[in-house]
Simulated scan of single mutants.
Amino acid sequence: MDLDLRKIRYFMAVAGELNFGRAAQELHIAQPVLSRQIRALESELGVQLFVRDRRRTELTPAGEALYADAGPVLAGAEALRRRVGRAARGTDAFTVGFMPGLIVTGAVRALTAAHPQLRVEVLRTSWADQVEVLRDGRADVSFVRLPVDQRGLKVTTLFEEPRVVVLPSGHRLASKDEIHLDDLAGETLLQPHKAVPEWQALTGDTAPRDEGGPAPLAVEEKLEHVASGSGIVILPASTAGFYQRPDVVTVSIADLGPTRVALAWDATRRSRLIAEFAALAAVHLSSPRPTG
């Protein structure tokens, strides 16, 4: 049996909303059509995906399993579509994703010098999409900050660098040269807690900001919120150094381990260019110097 990706997309919309009406609106189709497509998918798979009554719609265990695994399948199909389309247009390009604070120019220049006919492009990413750009085909490789979801990826660590806390200039700790993590107890962390796993151990918070509500994603947004006194952020030292401004300060955290920078790519791809770029990245990308 071949899976119908259109039906899988319909399923993902319903699973995301847990409401057939809203999912139908999102998909721009009639609700009865959507219901028929979901029933057809259940028939093809031989399982029940949803429990539905007058009050609510819920995923069954089979539905939960499909929801967990279908995202990468759809992303892989989209990535394949992008690469095939690019090849059909005769576009000889290689795209490198990178997180804020990282300078990837050396590796990019080295690849360009080795392949003058190749158009090497760069793509700025964020915590939200640093590996999604690989899964949906927007990037061939991506410089990521760990931890990331490594399913289906090849990940090779390049270097480590310290992390600092960014505080408003009038903060009680702003004049310190160094603090400890527990000095920040009671503060509001303005970023997804998965970006700072140690934070949950400190606070015992089981509802990270990224699951309980929207968090500012871009570094510039984070710093605006810090400057206004809404909370704090913890950043790699190089990122904080790139975004210096007079109304915030950075302070070292003595007992917070470093962040790791890695190169990642789709593990199923057998590309000579990816292997070549990985070797170049190991030579040309190193830990940035601490900024004063």
Rank of each mutant, 00 (worst) to 15 (best):
L181R: 04
L153M: 02
G76R: 11
S126H: 10
L280Y: 06
D129Q: 02
F98I: 00
I253V: 05
Q25R: 12
R56W: 14
R52A: 13
W265M: 05
A114T: 01
L45N: 12
D53E: 09
D2A: 04
F98G: 03
A70L: 03
F159Y: 12
D266G: 09
S286D: 11
L184W: 11
A185M: 08
S43R: 11
P100Y: 01
H180V: 14
I232H: 09
E17Y: 15
R135Q: 03
L102Y: 07
S238V: 01
V166S: 05
T188D: 12
P61A: 04
P290D: 13
L41C: 05
A88T: 07
R209H: 09
E26I: 05
E160I: 01
L184E: 11
Q244S: 10
S175T: 14
T188F: 14
L41T: 03
H193I: 01
L80D: 13
G137Y: 01
R39T: 07
R89A: 07
V33A: 14
R82W: 04
G106Q: 00
M99L: 10
A24Y: 10
L263S: 11
R56E: 13
T112F: 07
L223P: 09
L134W: 02
D182W: 15
P290I: 05
A207E: 13
G63T: 01
H171V: 00
G292E: 13
V73I: 14
R109D: 07
Q150C: 09
S287M: 06
A113E: 09
R163I: 01
G97L: 00
L49R: 04
A88I: 10
A174F: 08
S43E: 14
E178K: 15
E44N: 10
G292K: 09
V226C: 08
R89S: 14
E160V: 03
I29P: 11
A65E: 12
Q200T: 05
D136W: 07
P162I: 00
A237R: 04
G16C: 01
S228E: 15
I232P: 12
V148G: 03
A201E: 14
R119S: 08
L217N: 10
V47G: 10
V165C: 07
A110M: 00
G170I: 00
Y243L: 05
R172N: 10
R81Y: 15
H225F: 12
H115P: 09
G63W: 02
V164Q: 08
V14W: 15
H115C: 03
S287K: 12
A24L: 07
A128N: 12
D2F: 07
V120R: 07
G204L: 00
L181D: 09
R151H: 12
A77M: 08
V226E: 09
P236R: 02
V166W: 06
L280G: 04
A215V: 02
D205Y: 04
M99W: 15
V104G: 01
W199V: 00
K176D: 15
L280T: 01
S142P: 13
E121L: 08
V155K: 02
P288W: 00
G212H: 03
R245N: 11
R6P: 04
P236T: 02
V251P: 12
V108H: 02
